[in-house]
């Protein structure tokens, strides 16, 4: 049977979600996204550059919305109000598109989520019919609050956005995993393929990343590595790892029939 990730009633075969920022150009963006196997891609909503040539290529040409599920985000928003306005614009921009990524940041140094504002925005957005995937702290209590509001997925940070520091608090990630029934996607902080595998081994339903791929020396190769990391971690989780035996070794070879015995 297929092992699918279901978000807001829609099933996806890939558990890796990728961002589309920080690439050299749209060609590299597309090649990396394709290599990652991601079906959901995040995009940002920004003002048009007044005076810019209106015929410059757009992200939508490189990654047609017919091929990928867009996940418009509220990156850079520091208040619930700005986040809600941004996603209303995204909904209009993408023809009544409902699936969104909410993030309300606390400060530009850590990009840590401002949870009170995040909860406030989530309430408004869910009421307005948005399907809200939400960037949040790795806190099981807040994650449960977001689920209770009606968010369709919670996305705790592994470590600071763009830091590549990996999964710094696996215990909290598991607490979040156990606290909610909606999908848990680890978002932010993944640095390399083993981080993605660790996230999946912890029981996360998926991983969202951008910088780890875009700023790798070879983004397209790293996108492929991340795809495998997520798949390997998921399989290991489903297989069920052996119990840890602390301070006691257990030989893998027979202990009888040794020569000279």
């Amino acid at each position: 049977m297929d092992d699918l990730l279901t978000i807001a009633g829609k099933a996806y075969s890939s558990r890796l979600l990728v961002g589309t920022g920080k690439y050299k150009d749209f060609t590299e963006t597309r090649e990396a996204v394709v290599a990652s196997g991601a079906q959901i891609v995040t995009v940002a909503i920004r003002r048009t550059n007044i005076g810019q040539d209106p015929n410059t290529p757009s992200l939508l040409d490189a990654l047609p919305p017919s091929e990928f599920t867009y996940l418009p985000n509220t990156a850079g928003c520091y208040s619930a109000d700005d986040a809600v306005r941004t996603l209303r614009l995204a909904r209009e921009l993408l023809d009544d598109h409902r699936l969104v990524k909410l993030e309300v940041l606390g400060d530009p140094h850590t990009l840590f989520p401002n949870m009170p504002e995040t909860l406030k925005a989530a309430q408004v957005l869910v009421k307005e019919g948005f399907e809200v995937m939400v960037y949040c702290s790795d806190d099981p209590i807040q994650a449960k609050m977001l689920e209770d509001i009606g968010c369709v997925a919670v996305m705790p940070l592994a470590s600071l956005i763009g830091s590549g520091m990996g999964v710094l608090n696996p215990w909290n990630v598991q607490l979040v995993r156990d606290a909610v029934k909606v999908p848990v996607l680890l978002d932010a902080g993944v640095g390399t393929a083993s981080d993605a595998a660790i996230a999946m081994e912890l029981g996360c339903d998926g991983v969202l990343m951008n910088t780890a791929i875009a700023l790798a020396k070879d983004p397209v190769k790293m996108a492929g590595a991340m795809k495998k990391g997520v798949e390997a971690g998921r399989e290991a989780f489903l297989a069920g790892r052996m119990p840890r035996k602390f301070y006691t070794a257990s030989p893998s070879s027979p202990t009888t029939g040794m020569i000279g015995s």
Partner: peptide, 10 residues
């Protein structure tokens, strides 16, 4: 007025 488009982002 705010006029916005979709751009690359994470």
């Amino acid at each position: 007025l705010e006029i916005v488009v979709a751009v690359g982002g994470g």
